[in-house]
């Protein structure tokens, strides 16, 4: 099982071979409340670390989702278009946002591991 790493902006990323899957954390979905719309990047889009990659909307909040690392999108999760509630029910599973080919694996090391992230969100109160 590949390791899940987290950004301070609450994105998670899991590398499996050359391709990583990205989504928002379970904590993030619980903070946003009922997700009503997700816009995922199209295949081929080049992302830079920290740049805007996707949009997630709850009823009265819209948030950008940033690329946790640089790379190229290989697939957006089409299931979210029809069923954005997947982000609420399975943020770190079927509710993933997109998959990407990672440009520089070293960037992953700059992200938090599970324990560090749990400590981080605890600190947010």
């Amino acid at each position: 099982m590949a390791e899940t790493r987290y950004s301070k902006e609450h994105e998670w990323i899991r590398l499996d071979g050359e391709v990583a899957t990205v989504g928002i954390s379970d904590y993030a979905q619980s903070q946003l409340g009922d997700i009503v719309f997700v816009e995922v990047p199209e295949k081929g889009r080049k992302l830079t670390k920290g740049g805007e990659a996707a949009v997630v909307e709850s009823v009265k909040a819209a948030s950008e989702v940033y690329a946790p690392v640089s790379g190229e999108v290989t697939e957006g999760n089409a299931a979210l278009t029809a069923n954005p509630a997947l982000v609420n029910s399975a943020a770190q599973g079927d509710g993933w946002f997109f998959r990407m080919k990672v440009a520089n694996k070293a960037e992953l090391a700059e992200l938090m591991d599970e324990a560090a992230y749990q400590a981080y969100i605890k600190g947010l109160g």
């Binding site: 009503v36 719309f37 709850s58 009265k60 819209a62």
Partner: peptide, 10 residues
């Protein structure tokens, strides 16, 4: 509805 497009939120 869909008020997340609007200025008071975004």
């Amino acid at each position: 509805t869909l008020s997340t497009r609007e200025q008071h939120i975004r």
